[in-house]
Computed example of a mutant assay.
Amino acid sequence: MAETIRMVIAVLGNAASMSLYAAPVVTFKRVIRKKSTEEFSCIPYIIGLLNCLLFTWYGLPVVSCKWENFPIVTVNGVGIVLELSYVLIYFWFASSKGKVKVALTAIPVVLVFCIIAAVSAFAFHDSRHRKLLVGSIGLVVSVTLYGSPLVAMKKVIQTKSVEFMPLTLSLCSFFSSTLWLIYGLLIRDIFVAGPSVLGTPLSILQLVLYCRYRKGSVAEEPSKGDQEKGNSEKVDMEMGKVETNVTNHMNENS
C-alpha cells in the first residue's frame, strides 16, 4: 500500500513538473517565428539543464541504490531533452555576441557536470557518499532557480496586476513542489524533498498574490486607443511571464 501511494505521488509529480518544463515552448515559438532571441536570457535554461543533468545522474543506479529513484530519472530525463532544445534554439537564433555568451556559459556548465559525474563514479565506492556529493550540489543548483519567482512576485506587487504571473503556471508550480516534497519525505531523501521545502511556500505565496490582485487586473480595462498601442507590449509581457515562472520548479525535479 505504501509503495502504491509513493508511485501515485511520483506519477502526479512527474506530470506537474513536465508541464513546467514545457512552458517555455511558448517563448521559443516566438523566437523561431521572429528569428530573434530579442531580450530573452539563456541563463535560466542553461542552469535548468544543469539541474536536470545532476538529478538524472542522482537517480541512476550508478549513484542511487538500484532504481530506487527511477521517477526522478524519468522527469529529469525529459527535462534534459527540453532544456537542451531551448538552449540550442537560443544559440541558433542569437546574434554573434549572443552565441559567444551561450557558449561561454553552457560549456563550463557541461564540464562541471562531467567532473561531478566522474568524481562520484570513480572517487567514491558506495551509494551513500555518491548521493551525498551529487545530491548536495543538485540541491544548491535547485535553490538558485527560485530567484525568478521572487522577481515575478515583486512585479505583481509593484504593478498590482497578475499579468506577469499566470494562474496555470502558479498552480502547476504548487502541485509540483508539494508532490515532490511529499514524495521526498515518504522515501526519506532530503535531496529530493529539500528544494520543495522552499518551493512549496513560494508557490503558495504566488497563489495568495494572485487572489489578492486578480480583481485589480480584471477591473483595469484599457481604453480602445491604449489597446492598439499596447498590443506588442502585451505579447512581450506574456512571453516574459512564462519564462520567469518556468524556472520555479525545476527543482521539482528533485
Rank of each mutant, 00 (worst) to 15 (best):
T144V: 13
T144K: 00
T144G: 05
L145V: 05
G147S: 14
S148L: 02
L150K: 06
L150V: 15
L150Y: 02
V151D: 00
A152I: 04
M153Y: 12
K155M: 01
V156L: 07
V156C: 06
I157P: 02
I157V: 15
I157K: 09
I157A: 08
I157N: 02
I157L: 07
Q158P: 00
Q158L: 07
K160R: 15
K160N: 13
S161K: 07
S161F: 03
S161I: 03
E163K: 12
P166H: 11
P166M: 04
P166I: 08
P166L: 05
L167N: 00
T168C: 01
L169H: 02
L169W: 04
L169D: 10
S170R: 00
S170N: 09
S170L: 12
L171P: 01
C172E: 06
C172N: 07
S173C: 10
S173Q: 09
F174D: 03
F175S: 10
S176H: 03
S176R: 03
S177P: 11
S177H: 07
S177R: 07
L179D: 11
W180N: 00
L181T: 02
L181E: 08
L181V: 09
L181Q: 02
I182N: 00
I182Y: 06
I182D: 06
Y183C: 12
G184W: 04
G184T: 07
L185I: 15
L186G: 02
L186T: 04
L186F: 10
I187E: 14
I187D: 13
R188L: 05
R188D: 13
R188Y: 00
R188Q: 13
R188T: 04
D189M: 03
D189C: 10
I190E: 08
I190A: 13
F191E: 14
F191H: 15
F191K: 10
V192Q: 14
A193G: 07
G194C: 09
G194D: 14
S196Y: 02
V197G: 10
L198S: 09
G199L: 12
G199I: 05
T200P: 00
T200H: 01
T200I: 07
P201S: 06
P201C: 03
L202W: 05
L202E: 09
S203L: 02
S203N: 12
S203A: 15
L205I: 01
Q206S: 15
Q206W: 03
Q206F: 05
Q206D: 09
L207T: 13
V208A: 11
L209W: 05
L209I: 11
L209S: 04
Y210N: 11
Y210S: 12
Y210P: 14
Y210T: 04
C211M: 11
R212S: 01
Y213N: 06
S217M: 12
S217W: 02
S217G: 03
V218G: 00
A219W: 02
E220W: 00
E221M: 13
E221T: 13
E221W: 01
E221H: 04
E221R: 07
P222D: 11
S223Y: 02
S223H: 05
K224P: 05
G225E: 15
E228N: 04
K229N: 07
N231C: 01
N231I: 02
S232A: 10
E233W: 08
K234T: 12
V235T: 12
V235Q: 14
D236I: 02
D236P: 01
D236Q: 11
D236S: 14
M239S: 01
M239T: 03
G240L: 13
